[in-house]
């Protein structure tokens, strides 16, 4: 990977961080409502894995902590922020919200609130790929907690049985809201849980984007070439509470501090500084430019966009696409 790409990746992670922090502010200012789950600390996971996929052509799906997966898939940050502000120009026309981002134009197939719900959807995208015959793959990002749902086991079984091209990425941040993984789960190494289904799997550090990319490259290649599922577990940590209504008081200061030392942006920045790819000054200029862009373009766009019209509330319950003779 050359210096230009390395700088781009650093910028993408920093953009993700600043974007999420700005969302938190907007939430406190009541411009964003509902549940808001932010991604700081986990940036290397979505960005590292999707760097090795063909975004725009591979299908991507995840849970409610979905902003950065959407951005890295190619969603316009303005459409994302406008959605959080509940605006008509939002990626889901203000009908979805933070947990329900969609952009089929870049094959980002959503953001879902029900823990474990996207597993079968991802396998379904893969089923259609299989019927059409192409070399795309389907990528499903979910948390460690989701693996205790029936859909996890049911879908692993069917995906393996039917050779569906799905990459399952488990973002293991050690908690499901306030319940530590060892208090909810017998086998805490998630990648071991797919072995009985005959699915190849690996576990790696999710904080070092170079490590994530190395594993993701292998995982993506496995799925794309063998046309079989693969399971990649990334060990990570969220630096904030589960959502805006969670302070994270169930975690010790020491634990949080230990993981803060392994901040993915910190790790990558240090590496690029040491290699002379960026300077401290360049980094600060980059950070300033990102914050200006978020404020002056992204947030302004969202704030100034019109609300959906109340007259349109019943649109999209059913499809409208022209005349459907079988309806009436």
């Amino acid at each position: 990977m050359d210096a230009t790409d390395q700088k781009r990746l650093l910028r993408e992670m920093l953009f993700a961080r600043r974007f999420e922090e700005r969302c938190a502010e907007a939430y406190h200012e009541r411009q964003i409502g509902g549940f808001l789950h932010l991604y700081p600390g986990e940036e290397a996971c979505a960005i590292g894995v999707l760097e090795k996929a063909r975004t725009g052509s591979d299908y991507v799906v995840t849970g409610y902590r979905d902003h950065i997966h959407a951005l890295k898939s190619g969603m316009n940050p303005k459409a994302l922020m406008a959605e959080l502000f509940g605006k008509e120009a939002g990626c889901s026309k203000g009908r979805g919200g933070s947990m329900h981002l969609f952009d089929p134009d870049v094959r980002f197939m959503g953001g879902y609130a029900l823990v474990g719900g996207p597993f079968p959807l991802a396998a379904g995208f893969a089923k259609t790929i299989q019927l059409r015959g192409g070399d795309e793959i389907s990528i499903c990002f979910l948390g460690d907690g989701a693996n205790n749902q029936g859909t996890f086991h049911e879908t692993m079984n069917m995906a393996s049985l039917w050779n569906l091209p799905v990459l399952f990425v488990c973002e293991n941040n050690l908690y499901g809201i306030g319940t530590a993984i060892e208090r909810s789960t017998v086998e805490i190494n998630q990648y071991k849980r797919v072995a009985p289904y005959g699915i190849e799997a690996a576990q790696c550090d999710g904080q070092d984007i170079d490590v994530v990319m190395a594993h993701a490259e292998k995982a993506v290649q496995h799925v794309r070439e063998k046309r079989k599922p693969y399971f990649l577990e990334l060990m990570t940590y969220r630096l904030r509470g589960h959502s805006m209504s969670d302070s994270g008081a169930y975690r010790s200061k020491e634990e949080v501090e230990e993981w803060a030392q392994r901040d993915p942006i910190g790790i990558y920045k240090r590496r690029l500084l040491d290699a002379g790819v960026v300077s401290e000054d360049e980094f600060h200029a980059m950070d300033k430019a990102i914050q200006d862009e978020i404020e002056n373009e992204v947030v302004r766009f969202a704030a100034e966009s019109p609300e959906p019209r109340v007259e349109d509330i019943a649109r999209y319950v059913y499809t409208e696409g022209g005349k459907q003779p079988w309806l009436k």
Binding site: P120, L121, G124, F125, T128, L131, M158, W162
Partner: peptide
């Protein structure tokens, strides 16, 4: 195209839903 599923109602329904979302 004529698939005998395991006894996993929720997930094979979800696989159908996912397949439908992308054109099948």
């Amino acid at each position: 195209r004529v698939i005998d599923t395991p006894i996993s109602e929720n997930s094979y329904t979800g696989i159908g839903v996912g397949a439908a979302m992308v054109g099948a």
